[in-house]
């Protein structure tokens, strides 16, 4: 298992995939590979990535390796009992950048959340419809440019207006993380992808069954 963990932390997707296949061939159950391999690797990367020592490239590589292995283990997607909760993520309308959003989605998937990606430049109505349809426990908004702030401020009242007032709203990204939760009218402002994940993990603990 350690070789799988090391390959994942190195972001070496080919080695990680080879190791995961070897473990499966040796009869190691999928659940154990996920809990002792993938989740352990994510925890170790998480511990390493403080606000001061966090870079997109390393997280992308780990996230890609985890995604490839998870796809091998669960070719039809993770079974419902394996997910903590479902969250929606988007870059608000007016912001076409999606690198940060994609990284957060990878980190959350690696930590056992089901992530509904509503895309970039996402209109408020699409966001609301996505939150209602799934349904989700949280909406995550990633913003690289400051001009989306008015859009972000509209989300929580709009959710409440549709009877979704219990859905948490989390903001992050280079522009939004400069503001406070009060200034954005959100529940939490994440400084990094892992910071946002910690907030959600506290609210929605891991599935232990």
């Amino acid at each position: 298992m350690q070789r799988l963990i090391d390959s994942l932390i190195d972001g070496n997707r080919d080695a990680a995939l080879t190791e995961a296949r070897r473990l499966r061939a040796a009869g190691v159950p999928v659940e154990r590979i996920v809990s002792e391999g993938l989740e352990t690797a994510m925890e170790q990367v998480d511990a390493k990535c403080t606000v001061e020592a966090f870079n997109l490239l390393e997280i992308m590589l780990v996230g890609r390796a985890v995604t490839v292995v998870a796809g091998e283990l669960y070719p039809r997607g993770a079974p419902p009992g394996r997910t903590r909760a479902t969250v929606a993520i988007a870059s608000p309308e007016g912001d076409v950048h999606d690198l940060g959003k994609n990284i957060v989605a990878m980190v959350l998937s690696g930590k056992g959340f089901r992530v509904v990606d509503l895309g970039r430049d996402c209109p408020l109505d699409t966001l609301l419809e996505g939150a209602r349809r799934e349904p989700v426990v949280a909406v995550l908004l990633s913003g690289l440019i400051t001009t989306v702030i008015p859009q972000v401020r509209r989300v929580r009242p709009a959710l409440a207006g549709r009877g979704l007032g219990s859905v948490k709203v989390v903001a992050g990204g280079a522009a939004l993380r400069q503001a406070s939760a009060e200034q954005l009218d959100v529940d939490y402002v994440a400084q990094t992808a892992f910071d946002g994940a910690h907030y959600l993990e506290t609210l929605f603990p891991a599935v232990t069954s």
Binding site: L56, L57, M60, L61, L99, N102
Partner: peptide, 10 residues
């Protein structure tokens, strides 16, 4: 694209 360029770098 940012993602493609970063993956290319790695």
């Amino acid at each position: 694209g940012a993602e493609a360029a970063l993956y290319l770098a790695a």
